[in-house]
Write a protein that binds this DNA or RNA. Structure first.
Lengths: 220, 220
DNA sequence: TAGATTGTTAATCGATTAACAATC
DNA sequence: TAGATTGTTAATCGATTAACAATC
């Protein structure tokens, strides 16, 4: 019964990325007490066209109403259910440096259903230190924690030369997705998903944009 | 003389993003002592096709040699120059929470030419606290620091309801690009560039991928 | 009812890939 | 030289936008 209507087909990543935006924005609208939103309003708020919004929303199992738009409550629920944001997702962080510790304690994640259930570091000197309510564990503990707690996602926050090795360990331990915070290109088997956080790449992208937008120096 | 050959046209963002990958990987290759690399090798290492690599590199002012490929030294230099990675880029961080402090101290950034020259927080209780070698400053100091030090990029690491306001202040102060670490959709004037770090969105994307790759429960 | 807004089909646009002559 | 690899043009693919009948 799961696929009777053509939904539950795999949604293109470009669309999934925008669905996450609609979800965030719809949550805001609901908090602001708005009961309805139109594709035009959604588009304007997020810098898209209304056509894109309607096309995107045709991928989820929810329908708007002519002349009124979409019920924010229904839209939020349907987006959450499509994206899997209606259940908790367990994560572990590997690398207890600045970035790893910051993410492990990032409140927005827990508010949004991402539970960090372990922080690991290969440096024995880090073991036992506190990160929020968690204690840093050695890499040796990783398989047990991932296996027992059915951890979905591993966050790779180590120095980049160690990234592939850490990813391999996480995959063997059983995670199904990896968030890569390093600049390394990580290779994963097909059954595992990978998303690159692209911090440094984002800064480079900005540096390029700033560079080309610079006022031309008048020819000398 | 800058545009005589059709380079220095604005490069599509999809291409710019891959150029940053080529740059990272070429740096690795050089450190490993490799003098030459072919489009096929680059493609294989980064999960692309050799056709894409050659097409992308046609945007930069550098040429390979038939049968040998690209000189890693020349490629690195040309990519760095095209992207603006051959000069220092100044940044400020607004928001001295976990994430802001972590980024301000992230060593990879300074290694790669991004200099953090200020950390700001609207909470007076944070003022004067140390973040690496910097002291947290109040928002009132922002315009002076950005103006005097010719800061290119502002990193927005505040709670999401404050994101637009902080972005506006940064833009008025004179930054030319913004890295948005929040889930908020920030609106910027055309002359300012914006890149979203999309942390939470990345986790959601992973959660969706994990969800749809789950083994189907056999029909009851 | 009249008019606004949806869902969907068709058209456009841009990005990726294939193919191949040029060349070291 | 022969063969490998480039740079570039043409073909394909997919994503975005436009258009419009259906409808509340």
């Amino acid at each position: 019964m799961d696929s009777k209507d053509g939904h539950n087909q795999k949604i293109p990543v470009a669309v999934v990325r925008r669905l996450t935006k609609y979800l965030s924005h719809t949550q805001c609208l609901r908090q602001a007490g708005m009961d309805w939103v139109s594709s035009t309003e959604l588009a304007e708020a997020l810098g898209l066209t209304s056509s894109t919004v309607r096309q995107d929303l045709s991928h989820i199992d929810f329908f708007g109403i002519s002349k009124r738009g979409y019920s924010t409550a229904g839209l939020e629920a349907s987006l959450a259910s499509t994206l899997g944001a209606d259940r908790e997702t367990s994560c572990v962080v590997v690398g207890a440096g600045n970035l790893g510790r910051a993410l492990a304690q990032h409140e927005e994640f827990s508010r949004q259903g991402f539970r960090i259930c372990g922080v690991f570091d290969s440096n024995p000197a880090m073991a036992g230190k506190k990160v929020g309510k968690l204690l840093v564990q050695g890499m040796a503990e990783l398989p047990a924690v991932v296996g027992e707690q059915v951890v979905d996602i591993g966050i790779v926050a180590v120095p980049f030369p160690a990234a592939q090795q850490v990813a391999d360990w996480l995959i063997v331990a059983g995670v199904r997705g990896l968030l890569n915070l390093t600049t390394a290109h990580i290779i994963v088997p097909r059954k595992v998903s990978l998303v690159d956080a692209r911090f440094l790449a984002s800064l480079r992208e900005l540096a390029y944009a700033v560079k080309i937008s610079e006022p031309r120096v008048p020819a000398g």
